[in-house]
Structure formats: structure tokens, C-alpha cells
Design a protein around this nucleic acid. Structure first.
Lengths: 139, 139
DNA sequence: CCAGATACTTACCAAAAGGTGCATACTTGT
DNA sequence: ACAAGTATGCACCTTTTGGTAAGTATCTGG
């Protein structure tokens, strides 16, 4: 009855390896953070903030804390007076970052395609921004 | 000024390839769906529903529609009377699924570690369920 | 002396994500 | 005759997620 059994449903809690990974990198910015830190080596908070554009302080800090708690990044506080802190990857984090490389490549290779599809989607969505009951029907 | 410049910031809208990929597979179940369909070939809705455990009908349908709209999966409706529909991957979807393999492996290899870390986190969370204003200061 | 940078923290709020349950239309099994 | 399975759609509601803006302590540059 192997209908769509995939991965390896060994440990309890996760349906498969992919499931386990997804729980760790869940969060809008985590993969990006991992990837940036993987590239730049130890990265200061401010630099990360500027690299991962559009991220807010709150989010960046929060995700960094989770990544740290999950043993993927290491936080180093230099206890200096204008605060200085940087983040680097643990061995575990480094291995995860490597597993992300194919995703990055895929995105780079198919970016045009993705851009196109998203443009279509957005076009459809933006032609019904009317909150007034007028059902501008497309039919 | 290459502080933490990574990937390839070519097309507008995405900071890098990884960013592009993440937008496509954003959604709690999409990677799992892709992966399961990649394994089983054309998969019926019901089978997918049972394979991706804990997913609700609403969510599964929704994510399938998005994946279809993004050109990653193909929906085939056999127009039969007890409804019969199955989902398969497009070439684009297949390539993405392949890029997911390392993530799956990573999860399988580090599942014990991940399980452990998550157990600790959950243990900490469940020992402070006090909603009373008493600021149990740690100092 | 005040603005700005540093690395955060917190409170408050809006939006998105996700869950539950009911409905459909038709068939098969009991 | 009736429950169950098939693949969805829809309304309602809760939870999670994420954003904004303000505050903190200390130093440097103008």
C-alpha cells in the first residue's frame, strides 16, 4: 500500500526528513539569514539588517534568536561599548546552509519564469481592489 | 561595499535566487506536496491528503491551486462521476522537487538533533504558563 | 549639546494563515 | 434506505505572523 510514502518516517513528530527541516527553517527570513551568514562569515547585526532588505528589527532579532536556540547560529557579543555583536554559523547551520544552495540556484535559474508568473497573479489581483459592492465582473 | 552580498540580485523584486524560490514554496505544505507528488508520480487528491498528514482539505486544495497557478503542478480532472482528479509535476515542478532533496536529506540526517532541540524548547515553554501579572523576575 | 549609530526590547495592531464544519452531487456498499 | 467515499467550495473564527513606532544606554562626530 505504498501510496505516496516518501522520505523516512522514523522519529516521532516528523513525517519525514523534509518535514523536520521545514520546521527549523520556517519563518519568513530564516533561510535568507542562514544564507547571508554562510556567505559573509561572522556578520554583524547591522550588516545583516542591511543585507536582508525589508526585514524589521523585531523580525530579524526574533529569527536570529530562534536560529540560535535551534543551534544553527552562534551569537558573539563583544561586550564593547557601542554594542558590537556578530552572528556566525555552527557546523549544523553550515550544513543546512549547504542544503539551501540548490534552492538558491533554482531560483536564480528560474527567476524570469517566477517573475512572470507572479506578475500575472498580481495583475489579476489588482484589477479587483474595489471594496465597494460593485462586482466588476470579469466573466 | 559588499557587506553580505549573496546570490545574484539581478531581476527586480527578488533580492536573490533564494528569495525567489522562497516565495514560490512559501506555505506550510507546499514543499511536502511537491515532494510527495515527485515520489509517487500522478497522485490522486485523496492519496495526497492521507500522505501529507494533518493537512486540512481547505489548505491542501488552496496550496494545490497556488502550485498549479505557479506552473509547478498539473491538475488532471478525469471528469468521472465519483470525482477523480490527480496531480502531477510539470518540468518546472520536477526541477524544484529535485532542489528539495538536500533539504530532505538534511532533515533525515539531523532528525535526532532537531527532535532534541524542539523538545527542550517545548519544555521551557510549558513551564511558564502563568498569565498572572506577577513579574516573576529573573534578575 | 544634539543628532546619529549601535543592538536590541517592548507594546500595540493589522494582516495573513490556518482550522472546523457544513454543503454538493453522484455512486457504491450494507 | 442510508452511510461513506469522491473532490471540492464556502463561511466563520482563531491563531500566528509580521509590521510600526517608540524607548534604552553609551559613544562619536559636528
Amino acid at each position: 500500500m505504498p501510496t505516496a510514502q516518501a522520505c523516512t518516517p522514523t522519529l516521532p513528530g516528523f513525517t519525514c526528513g523534509l518535514d523536520a527541516t521545514l520546521r527549523v527553517i520556517a519563518g519568513k527570513w530564516k533561510p535568507l539569514i542562514l544564507y547571508f551568514v554562510a556567505q559573509g562569515g561572522p556578520t554583524r547585526y547591522g550588516a545583516l539588517r542591511r543585507a536582508v532588505r525589508d526585514v524589521s528589527d523585531k523580525m530579524l532579532i526574533q529569527q536570529l534568536k530562534e536560529l540560535e536556540a535551534d543551534g544553527l547560529v552562534k551569537r558573539t557579543d563583544y561586550k564593547e561599548i557601542p554594542p558590537r555583536v556578530d552572528y556566525s554559523l555552527t557546523p549544523l547551520g553550515r550544513s543546512l546552509a549547504e542544503a539551501l544552495v540548490p534552492l538558491c540556484s533554482w531560483g536564480t535559474e528560474n527567476m524570469a519564469e517566477v517573475t512572470r508568473v507572479f506578475a500575472e497573479r498580481d495583475a489579476l489581483n489588482s484589477q479587483r481592489p474595489e471594496p465597494s459592492g460593485q462586482s466588476t465582473r470579469i466573466e
